[in-house]
Design a binder for these strands. Structure first.
Lengths: 225, 225
DNA sequence: ACCTGAACACCGTTCAAGT
DNA sequence: ACCTGAACACCGTTCAAGT
């Protein structure tokens, strides 16, 4: 019955699910919990942090990675499970896209996804491209991960990286390799234009292949599993 | 000097570009224009309609389709130009995703994109799948286009379709073909789960091909043009 | 008939006053 | 020391009063 961060987050998710994210206000949330608005601020520092916590609830519902079934089915199941979460909480992807910094839970999700590709024999560099391709499709936060590295003191950055490397080794490996020219540990982040065209051409080539084989196929060129 | 819809929209886009979409309020916009807040409501019915108009400004900046260079380069240039617009106006994709109904300008953009694929020899059905794949990447509104068709009177729907068909023949062709079982003109819209898996598998197959050929290639398996 | 100030019903968050 | 009501600085939009 006592108020807790968990109870606050779950009530907020329920409001957003039922009435839409635009109906979620601190005052409405407090009312639903039978509490004075200011009481919420003991469990979340601000509405911003409330939204972060709500994203973590959604990401926490994604199935853990299934190991030993090959990278392709591993990634496939993970992404389809993520989609189920996002369908249950339609506000989540938009909220995710509106934030500049991923939460630890989101980083953890990305790290384990990267791990699946690496274990499947993908090079660090190819994994990086591939994460860009699926990133904006499934969870729209990848591109901004290290985008402020230019304005950060390189020494502070190195410390940050070493610290993060303990918890998210795969993410750090990708981010480090992203400096194509290698002038610094992280460089100026990765070449977004390159990544965008990489993804675009991957799709266009796929479209071309489908078009060329369509005559030998029916309506749906691919079976549902 | 006189206030006009166009001047209101351009001022709103300027605020969102400079200070972020969260800084855009009717009151701030009025102040920037040297006008009392209520004066805006003669040119836009509500903030919602203001946002629609702003999206139209952004979409209006996308280059018109280049004809006669083949579907692949046509689509490629169109999408890269759309990306430039969205980079100039970083708030635009999020606003677009938050709306349930596309504006006529957006429909027009989709219609001409579909036209490029059709002229390039893509079947209606394949064009439909392919639009789903790029839709959520480039402009995130495709999926919701006809999602309320179940709750609409079929007769009203038929009239709507005939009317729309004049302006957006390609969009209507795609939407009509989307009823896989053909029980009604539009049916219950298209099978989102199928479309999602179609896109996912297209990407996974592409990843696999890249992985398999990576040993014979260097860092970037694909040249920038 | 047109225009607009004040008002209404909200926000997220601060802060001082009360216990 | 803790808790919280009132207050502050905002919203989008309505509406009646003024011209």
């Amino acid at each position: 019955m006592a108020l807790s961060r968990d109870r606050v987050l779950r009530a907020a998710v329920a409001i957003a699910d039922d009435a839409g994210i635009e109906s979620l206000s601190m005052r409405k949330l407090a009312e639903d919990l039978g509490v004075v608005p200011m009481a919420l601020y003991k469990h979340v520092a601000s509405k911003e942090e409330l939204l972060d916590g709500m994203i973590d609830v959604v990401v926490g519902e994604i199935d853990p990675p299934v190991l030993g079934t090959g990278w392709k089915s591993g990634v496939r199941h993970r992404i389809l499970s993520a989609r189920q979460s996002l369908l249950r909480h339609p506000w989540a992807s938009r909220v995710m896209e509106s934030k500049k910094n991923p939460t630890p839970v989101v980083l953890e999700y990305m790290d384990s996804m990267i791990g699946i590709f690496r274990a499947g024999g993908f090079s660090v560099s190819l994994t990086h491209h591939v994460m860009h391709v699926i990133g904006s499709r499934i969870l729209g936060f990848t591109q901004e991960l290290f985008n402020d590295s230019r304005t950060v003191d390189p020494e502070v950055q190195a410390v940050m990286l070493r610290e993060l490397g303990g918890k998210y080794p795969n993410v750090v490996a990708i981010a480090t390799a992203a400096s194509h020219e290698g002038e610094s540990v992280v460089g100026q982040g990765c070449d977004d234009q390159f990544e965008f065209e990489f993804a675009l051409d991957l799709l266009l080539d796929g479209f071309e292949r489908l078009r060329n084989t369509e005559s030998t196929s029916i309506n749906h060129p691919r079976q549902l599993e």
